[in-house]
Design a protein around this nucleic acid. Structure first.
Lengths: 101, 101
DNA sequence: TACACGTGTAAAGTATTTCTTACAGGTAAA
DNA sequence: TTTACCTGTAAGAAATACTTTACACGTGTA
């Protein structure tokens, strides 16, 4: 795990909307429009947050066809455990310094 | 731990400069000017990052008088272990929803 | 006195992230 | 055809985060 990746992991989580998205998806898989309604936010905004979460690997989305033929994009959480401590940070910085130097 | 605190903890770490600050201080306690020299950054900027880290509890600073009578502000890391996972996020969001609703 | 070193902060500029508004396009049912 | 759903993105506004520059002030040494 590089320094950049480590930071991307942390910053992808550091947002209240994204916390709520994860909390909702933890209970059940939902499609984008439904999720937007429950969170009371615009779809456009939700998309941005979902992409940030998906890039970091915290959620994953896939298209699904509903009974009445609509394409729904469902998202679900990918179980994760993010741990950061002094040793990890030292290692990430050291690795980065060597690769860059 | 509230939702806001949880997010503050994560975002305080989510920065390459702050990673490097922690990595340096992990090896030895340093005063601000010396730290700035080693990192190659301005003192003013370093101050901002140190304050962010100190507010979140990752480092702590104290004034110390050098042999030649100068007041030096030394910083050191406060050992920590930050863990985030789905369950923690669900709990933080639930607590927040109840206190706010 | 002037110089070299230190702490601390305020203000202004830049960059990044977050948010809104406005589109284009698709399927199914009334 | 109109209505009611859905996906997806682009462009600009607003809010935050980050960075620089410029100060004020203090101690010890040349």
């Amino acid at each position: 795990m590089t320094l950049d990746e480590e930071i991307a992991r942390l910053s992808a989580l550091a947002n209240p909307h994204r916390f709520r998205i994860i909390a909702l998806l933890a209970a059940e898989s939902l499609h984008v429009s439904e999720l937007a309604r429950r969170l009371g936010m615009s779809r456009a905004l939700l998309y941005m947050h979902l992409q940030r979460l998906e890039s970091a690997g915290y959620v994953t989305g896939h298209l699904e066809l509903s009974d009445d033929g609509k394409a729904l994009k469902f998202f679900e959480v990918v179980p994760f455990e993010v741990t950061t401590n002094v040793a990890r940070i030292v290692a990430a910085v050291a690795a980065d310094t060597e690769s860059t130097h």
